[in-house]
Amino acid sequence: MRNLLILTRRELAASFSSFGYYALLGAVAAISGFFFFQALEQGGGDLRWALVGSSGFIFWLALILAPLLTMRLFAEERKSGSLELLMTAPVDDWEVVLAKYLGALVVFTTFFAPFWLAHLVLALFFDGPVDWGQLSATTLGFSTVALIQLAIGLMASALVSQQLWAALFAFLGNMALYSLGLLRLLCEEGSRTWNLLGYVDIGRHVQTGVAGLVDLRQVLLQVSVTLLLLFWTVRIVEVRKWR
């Protein structure tokens, strides 16, 4: 566990000490502020609708951000040679994988800060009746979906040597994940398969969160699939080490 903490801190330090991270966060804050304000104005000042309206932006942000954050995790270390050093250190492979994953997850979650800040500003200075419950559910909804997205990204990064390929594979993987819900079009509406595909439809998971709901089945699905992906990533790292 100590190794895990040290490695996670190393990952976080690498991100939080880079100007690139702040530049990206600043850009995201400006763009999300724009979308949030637009949605607020269109919804006649309705905060509930402002969140729903700007969720489309968060969706695309998550889809693009996850590959960006994970592409370098293994691919870059392999390119610079620091991965071999890390793998020969007295740490388990799963600790390395999990530390990289947790680091990416924490960094990803910080990109919600602009939304919370915007709500905080509204609550403190504009007497806005902010629904913190809905905002929390939205954050939780996107974060739990990000669990899988980041795990896919991490696996892609462990699989290939080039960052660009890793990002592309992660993006396509995430798109495929979102497309699962489209398979419903092939099924008879209301049938068992149709309902089951609705259950695994990640797009619906996001909608659930934005509406202000937490569905434990969806959380279970996301956590279990994430664990499966991380398990495979550890295996991939092991296999590559053996080569």
Binding site: A23, L25, G45, D46, L47, L117, V121
Partner: peptide, 28 residues
């Protein structure tokens, strides 16, 4: 069921400036 915030009389521009200018600026 809605939760409305009243952004009239230029308050909307102040809020816009904060979320699109001040916050990103502070982060940078």
């Amino acid at each position: 069921r809605g939760a409305k915030v009243i952004l009239s009389d230029g308050r909307d521009r102040v809020f816009q400036a904060i979320v699109m200018g001040v916050v990103p600026g502070l982060i940078l």
